[in-house]
Amino acid sequence: MKRHLRLFLRYFAQYTKVRLAYKADFLIAFFSSMAATVLGFGFVLVLFSKIPRLQDWSFNEVMFLYGFSLIPLGFFNVVSWNLYDFGELYIIEGRFDRVLLRPVDTLFQVIFEKFRLESLQEVVTGLAVVTICLRRMHLALGVADYFWFALMVACGAVIYLAVFLILTAVSFWFEDRVGIVPPVFNMLNFGRYPLTIYNVFIQFLLSWIIPFGFASFYPTTHFLGRNTFAVYFHLVPVVAAGFSLLAIVVCNRGVVNYSSTGT
């Protein structure tokens, strides 16, 4: 554990140096990341210029939900970079051999080999939006709420990571170049609206099949004082734990199944 923590810090420092070596590239990546985040808000902002409420959810509440979802997403984005090209780079090109040869956990290496540093701006933006929305709604967080908030952010990031690890592990069996990762990535958006607007099928899909609802919607209900979802709120850590367990099992199965390309 201690060794892994030290390795993590080394990996992080090393990659930061690599990224900062190309300053112009990093700046462009940072500003495009910023632009993407701002544009993401566009839909909600334009919409609420036309309507007063979304069902019984106010503008501030929807913005709070959207802002909150950015925080775990930001952390997830920082470490998820390698997952996008995993099938392409590690399986098809056989780079996974190198990972297997090292005496460190394979999953650990794949996740922490690259960091999308610029995505940390999403965390900051999310925190800013959440703070502004709380102010405008005259809501205050208690001491316990700060603890819950941190826990929910961690669980959200874990849920995102677990879902995409499972999808990534699929490339151990099917060497498809694009696969199913991008469509599911776009579904992240759908967990950023109150789940109550959907019918039971989509609510079920976003809760139990691809549990993005547990990473964004259910956590926020507690802070917005909507107690009808209290059970779901308390299930968030359970879902996070369950899905990460599943992810680890699937990944380990995949590694066993891996056959090198011989390069």
Binding site: S32, S33, A35, A36, L39, G40, V46, W81, E118
Partner: peptide, 28 residues
């Protein structure tokens, strides 16, 4: 550039919103 991943992501969101895919431009 070394990597255009960020640029491509920004373009993705830009096109989604400004092409009118998500909502009609007249709503702006």
């Amino acid at each position: 550039l070394q990597s255009i991943l960020g640029l491509m992501r920004a373009k993705f969101f830009l096109l989604e919103l400004l092409s009118g895919l998500l909502l009609p431009i007249s709503f702006f």
